[in-house]
Design a binder for these strands. Structure first.
Lengths: 332, 332
DNA sequence: ATGAAAGCGCTAACAG
DNA sequence: CTGTTAGCGCTTTCAT
């Protein structure tokens, strides 16, 4: 492998000059620069970035901790991350953690071991030990999408409570009063906030909360399918279901139809995320559109700010209620 | 940041001893080992892997070139890659190339610049220039899923021709003789092979090929939707459609229903990939199941073999026809 | 404008 | 078993 020394010999200059000709062309004389560039070309020289990084103590790699890459919402977030990182000369180390905290901690240590400069965490968990970054220290991390309440770092998120409230209000405005909810994982702040929003809407409309209508889920189509089954079987069946993800909504619709019921005639269904399939489901899904790619892009921009020692504010991104055919007037 | 020297001072030994105590504990005396480990703990020492890598000339990073991470099939492949890489102590540098050759070349140069040890390419394109790896040299690359005909490296793929033939034969066996096909990108070997399989099946059943029934697509639901529109509008409408991806099949079904036609009563639809949504579409999708995660796992295993200088054979993974409700007997 | 030389943190001869 | 020493390839003072 050709290194800078080879190039220096070939050009008849010192290694320092080669380095300078490449990094700050303006401070070497045009003639030397020419010579160097010719030698670089001739030798097919590519700087060993491992050495460069080692020297400069920066890797230009970002670690992304994603709960599951199989979820199309996260896939979109990652696209955004990937794109923004590339533009700024950073690589992306993708870690599919499946929500496993040990794994997240392990991956975060890529930063302690200087394999990466910072972390984008897409789940509400701090993967850094007190030890690695004692108190006062600024964590090289951004927490995005699902955010810790007392995050030790800057965050980008949606106003999940408001969004869930709006989705629920949409159903209420269609005349629904018995509205089921298929939730996300138990201890997720995201789920808690969305449930809050759901309850806010009910309260505002003077509808009493019925715990039976609250079903567990894990964002997969399968869990939506199963929880829909429970809801359908209820003595007093809901006329609408609000799902915390489109994937669950699609699973739920599948189960509802299997039971011989129609969407939205018998049961309206609303989702959350606005994934690509939402438009192609039957019926097309009413949902809350999240700016998934923007989450990724913003997280990268913020993380780089942090890495460069600047102050960063938390960010709340906008959502939109997209009304499609899966929700309709209640006609019991 | 604490480094090996600090630890050495703290333990009252040389840096070499610290290094040894950590890398090959058996060749240092138990007492020194203890001292060193205590010092390591006390200093909160983590080896600077950048330095280790720099020294050992290995990064333990793999580059993955993926056409689009938004496709759930690739998401599964990546999960497999990710998992296998982690088990073997490798990190994954994910590159969403959108099929852009310049981008792929650029990312592949992470290897030339020693940011990564090898490449897993999920598209039929060689991202390495002749210059970087002259002829004889063994490319540190595995080509998976969509494979070049004369790949310059080991490959893992499906027998796409046989799989497409089987899917088509399934439709023929149901009495269909007018079978549309929604294809993948124009110049993809994958598309060519699948079309071959489709034609193989037609020939074997003495059905003449009708070019009108061949529609373009790009694996997205949207393209399936559009091509279905074309097929429906045909004077002699097909009674079945074979799509090269489930995402297109889902788009196609959506369009067919919009036209007031029923699946499978009026038109049967078959897909390819068996993504998670295939079971939850209405009707559930008949499709060719690919072992997506296995592609990822095998590619990693093979790449590491190559990196360690061993010989590797090409691999063909098995597929399965999964028959669900979207295909049924032809009754014109 | 250029060169000589130090050193980033670590490992691996080579001595002892 | 342990210490000394020489780099890995590069950037960056400090001289010239």
């Amino acid at each position: 492998m050709t290194n800078i020394r080879k190039v220096a010999e070939l050009a008849g200059v010192s290694v320092a000059t080669v380095s300078r000709a490449l990094k700050s062309p303006d401070i070497v004389s045009p003639t030397t620069r020419e010579k160097v560039l010719k030698a670089v070309d001739q030798a097919g020289y590519k700087p060993n970035l491992m050495a460069v990084q080692f020297r400069s103590q920066r890797t230009y790699n970002l670690v992304v901790l994603v709960p599951t890459i199989a979820n199309t919402f996260f896939a979109r977030v990652i696209s955004g991350i990937q794109e923004a990182a590339q533009e700024r000369g950073y690589g992306v180390l993708l870690c599919n953690t499946l929500g496993n905290e040990a794994m997240e901690t392990q991956y975060a240590s890529l930063v302690s071991t200087r394999q990466a400069d910072g972390v984008i965490q897409l789940r509400a968990f701090n993967p850094f030990s007190e030890k690695a970054f004692p108190d006062g220290a600024v964590l090289p991390m951004i927490n995005a999408c699902e955010v810790l309440d007392d995050a030790p770092c800057p965050t980008v998120k949606l106003d999940n409570r408001a969004a869930a409230r709006e989705a629920t209000e949409h159903l209420i405005s269609l005349g629904h009063r018995r509205i089921g909810m298929i939730k996300g994982p138990r201890r997720s702040p995201l789920t808690r906030d969305r449930q809050q929003g759901y309850q806010d809407a009910l309260s505002a409309a003077d509808i009493a909360l019925d715990e039976c209508l609250l079903c567990p889920g894990d964002f997969t189509p399968r869990s939506g399918y199963q929880s829909a089954e429970t809801l359908i079987a209820l003595a007093e069946r809901p006329t609408a279901i609000f799902c915390e993800s489109d994937e669950m909504a699609i699973g739920a619709i599948s189960r509802i139809k299997e039971a011989g019921l129609r969407v939205p005639e018998d049961i309206s269904v609303a989702g959350f995320d606005d994934i690509a399939f939402a438009s192609y489901s039957d019926p097309p899904l009413t949902t809350i559109a999240q700016p998934a790619e923007a989450f990724g892009r913003e997280a990268v921009a913020m993380l780089i700010e942090v890495l460069e020692g600047r102050q960063v504010d938390n960010l709340v991104l906008p959502y939109t209620l997209v009304s499609r055919a899966s929700t309709a007037t209640c006609r019991p």
